[in-house]
Design a protein around this nucleic acid. Structure first.
Lengths: 156, 156
DNA sequence: CATGTTCGACAACCTCGTTTACTATTCCGT
DNA sequence: ACGGAATAGTAAACGAGGTTGTCGAACATG
């Protein structure tokens, strides 16, 4: 894709490109390490489920999507072996969603690969530049930006 | 969403968050300026069509998606009034895709809003920090990263 | 105990992508 | 001049991921 003519286009494009390269590298490495089915969105979900487990409704609430969407995503991750559903003995309506051992493995490997990629950026740019980017971005993004409830983002 | 425990998670998350805030702000403003149906992906498409126009196949090639996907996206943008199809008099197989006046208006307004948003970042961080982020990112991203042909990105 | 709320499930539909298949047209080599 | 190969557009079936709306079962509370 050619560089846009207008200056303002560069910043969002570069931020997206930076994110994309990191995530593409992550998933290329994860596929190599035995997780070829893990998709970018799955990391968010596994992270949101957490070590204690949750329900589909609560997961939807955390991710800012409907409980139905969260339920379907859980279905896919259960089919892939990253999550499991267990009945809640205290409430017959609820089904606890929990991360499996395979899910924890994927999460740990993701963290390790991201650490390694950040190290690669630091080796090229210098650690101070990387932390400066992080600090600057932290100042510019609102705290609740990770809610995926904006229509048109990941499907709308 | 809570801040992740592992340090390596922060960088990709912040890059995505920065991109998301810019694009969310852009589309909120575009909706206010008479383009409520313009979605994030549409900007890429309008940009890729260009002032000279193209065909659906070439558009798919430029965007790194199949010609069928490009054709369906063109269908939607034609329905919204941002693109038009005209028969190519020189080749009866081809149908030229061109940006309409409405499409050009959306593109111009997008550029203006992005310029304005970059100015807001510069007002907070300083112009030199913004350009430093852009320069650093340019060093870290490969040139062909905007090809959307990675499965799992925008649907897969 | 009746009422209202919450949870999970199901169905229908949208967007955006894929692969496979097919038609029409153009191009090119014999 | 003509028949095969490449190209353009289209269509169907599918998958991922999202949306509403509905529903029954289970809980909570008056």
């Amino acid at each position: 894709m050619t560089t846009p003519d207008r200056p303002g286009f560069a910043l969002p494009l570069l931020l997206l490109a930076g994110f994309r390269t990191l995530v593409d590298d992550l998933h290329a490495e994860l596929a190599r390490q035995g997780h070829p089915d893990l998709r970018p969105a799955h990391g968010f979900v596994l992270q949101a489920v957490g070590p204690a487990g949750t329900t589909a409704s609560d997961l939807g609430h955390r991710l800012g999507v409907s409980k139905q969407a969260a339920g379907k995503t859980v279905d896919r991750l259960v089919a892939l072996g990253y999550l499991e559903r267990v009945d809640d003995p205290a409430d017959a309506r609820r089904k606890l969603v929990r991360v499996t051992a395979k899910g924890r493995d994927g999460l740990h490997r993701s963290a390790a690969v991201f650490d390694q990629l950040r190290g690669r950026w630091a080796a090229t740019l210098g650690v101070d530049r990387v932390t400066a980017i992080e600090d600057d971005l932290r100042r510019m993004v609102p705290a609740d930006v990770f809610r995926l409830d904006v229509p048109g983002w990941f499907g709308g």
